[in-house]
Simulated assay, not measured.
Amino acid sequence: MPGKMRSDREKIPDGYTKADADKAETMEARIEKQRMLRAAPGCEVYWPAPFEVCGAIRDKYNSLGGPRSFLLLPKSNELTNPDGVGRRSEFQNGPIYWSPQGGAHPVVNHFFAAWARHGWEGGYIGYPTTDEIANPDRIGRRQHFTGSTIYWNARNPVNAYSIGGAIFGEWGRQKWEQGWLGYPTSDEEPADDKRYNSFENGYIFWAARSGAFAVRTTPDPRKPAHDGYCDANDPAHCSPDPNHDAYYYMQACMDGYMRDDDIVLVLKPVGELGAWGDLTLTCGRYRHIHNNHNAHADQSNFLLCLSLTYTWGLKWDGAKNGNSGIAWDNRKGHWGYIVYDLQNRIVTAFPSGDDGKDWGGCTRGYRK
């Protein structure tokens, strides 16, 4: 009767009509009556929203604070997902999804957007298995799913990205976001017969014949500068030191602190290609590659192109002057070449193209 409904006594929140509020109150009364008759279906209605929230989704919603949580009020009844297995209820600030594999969990904001990019529960990411979790560094968050994990961080607040499988395993070996790679800056992407994720400081690539491996694309800021690198009694000669990375050696070479035959880097193949052995690049040959192919001006792409060419290129013999070589071609115009001698020393390396200096073109080719 008029004057007896809750909507006549209390202010109705924005977004709901008096009819909605009265319907919700009627539903609440019906469910309460069912409880008294011991026939409750495990659902609740949250006034003034005229929708039932049921079962495990209701329990999760209540545990978060119900209408006072970040989800606010419900805006749908429980819905069956397209796979016919999972369930979801939608709220003003996002849904809660339930599956037998993962239970009930909200997926909202950037995590929901990343999930949606790949087909929600129907894609490779699958169903959520956790709520959002704060990372140890206190600047990022993550959420686990049955097929992948989505990461977000405050340094790149616009997007969240998924990472899973062998690439996730390799990232873990590099200490996840607290290691030198940092946070992912892309979802897992295809690249011909390979896959990769980009990160703040590098890439992790995967292929069936090589597995997953990480490649640095920025100098390591934790490495010391030249002070202490060279022997004070022999400043013209700097011995290789595994505590320094390739950027350190390349700079030392170009600054004149290394002799021509000093080793700048050792190129190591991975997986089944390990039988090919290590390739070494000396300071003299590095300067040659820079002078002819602009290596030092684009160090990150130079190192990445070398690593990927050695891992996924095809070996060939009978190169000029009896040397051997490795060439990579993705049939889309971006090639990488490495030529080496019988002692596995790199003689030269270059990307294809009119001027043989487009190292960025070489690495972009791997990601197409």
Results as ranks from 00 to 15, higher is better:
18 K>F: 15
23 K>G: 13
28 E>Y: 05
32 E>H: 10
53 V>A: 08
68 R>S: 15
71 L>E: 02
84 G>W: 06
86 G>L: 07
104 A>Y: 00
108 V>D: 05
109 N>F: 08
124 Y>E: 06
125 I>K: 02
128 P>M: 09
136 P>W: 04
139 I>N: 02
141 R>L: 07
144 H>V: 09
145 F>T: 02
155 R>E: 10
157 P>R: 12
158 V>S: 13
189 E>Q: 12
190 P>C: 02
199 F>I: 04
206 W>L: 14
207 A>G: 15
209 R>C: 10
210 S>V: 15
211 G>D: 08
218 T>R: 14
224 P>T: 10
224 P>Q: 01
235 P>V: 15
262 D>H: 04
268 K>F: 01
287 R>H: 06
289 I>Y: 05
291 N>F: 09
293 H>C: 05
295 A>R: 05
298 D>K: 13
302 F>G: 05
304 L>W: 05
309 T>M: 02
310 Y>P: 11
311 T>N: 15
315 K>A: 14
318 G>R: 01
321 N>H: 13
322 G>K: 04
323 N>E: 01
329 D>M: 09
336 G>E: 06
339 V>A: 14
341 D>R: 08
345 R>I: 14
349 A>V: 03
355 D>V: 14
355 D>G: 07
355 D>W: 12
357 K>L: 08
358 D>P: 05
363 T>F: 00
368 K>W: 08
